[in-house]
């Protein structure tokens, strides 16, 4: 299977598209359910077969230029730690949404801020974006901190916009304009 052959490097990380061979590792990272707890729509439990299918589907979408998925690998060990994705790319509107997660062993070390910053530099250019947004459900302090560290501005908290795990939850919305990203 062909994939997009490109790699981004940061001090501690390598960002590159996943392959179906990464499914087992991803399965382990997602197994404790802590990611599905904060990302509405992410299945849990999520079987190995389903994850493999999902990776294959994402590769295809990436090849079509509809999305961009990057595995987050530890440079030293080559260990897959999480995923970073650009979705809902609306070319005419120069707009897209970002999503991300790390396995619980790899959180709290500044990895995600490092990863997203590098990916933004690449994506603003590659997809000719004017604006990238991100949203999290209320209470996800770690995610809102990442957004703030990236210079994203809170644009609203949309009350009970999301039904998740049997409850109405607020969607907290952040946006980043190209001009502000490059102003720093």
């Amino acid at each position: 299977m062909s994939t997009l052959q490109f790699t981004l490097q940061t001090d501690r990380l390598v960002l590159k598209p996943c392959e179906t061979a990464d499914a087992e590792c991803m399965h382990e990272l997602l197994e404790d359910g802590s990611v599905a707890d904060v990302i509405p729509g992410l299945p849990h439990p999520y079987s190995l077969v389903e994850i493999r299918e999902c990776i294959a589907k994402d590769i295809e979408l990436d090849l079509n230029g509809e999305t961009s998925h990057l595995g987050i690998f530890q440079k030293e060990t080559n260990q897959l730690m999480g995923l970073l994705m650009l979705v809902r790319i609306v070319k005419d509107h120069h707009y897209a949404e970002v999503g991300y997660w790390l396995g619980s062993d790899y959180r709290g070390k500044g990895y995600m801020t490092e990863a997203v910053k590098a990916a933004f530099k690449h994506w603003f250019d590659q997809f000719d974006l004017n604006r990238i947004v991100a949203h999290h459900i209320d209470g996800n302090k770690a995610s809102s901190n990442v957004m703030q560290k990236l210079g994203m501005a809170k644009e609203g908290e949309f009350v009970q916009h999301i039904w998740h795990q049997g409850q109405y939850r607020n969607a907290v919305w952040y946006g980043l304009l190209k001009k502000d990203f490059y102003a720093d």
């Binding site: 509107h93 501005a153 644009e155 609203g156 919305w173």
Partner: peptide
Amino acid sequence: REGVLRQQMPRGGKFIDMIY
């Protein structure tokens, strides 16, 4: 009014805010 999506919509050569 719960929020403003900045520069969400291109219109007439500019990006216009959308209000939620």
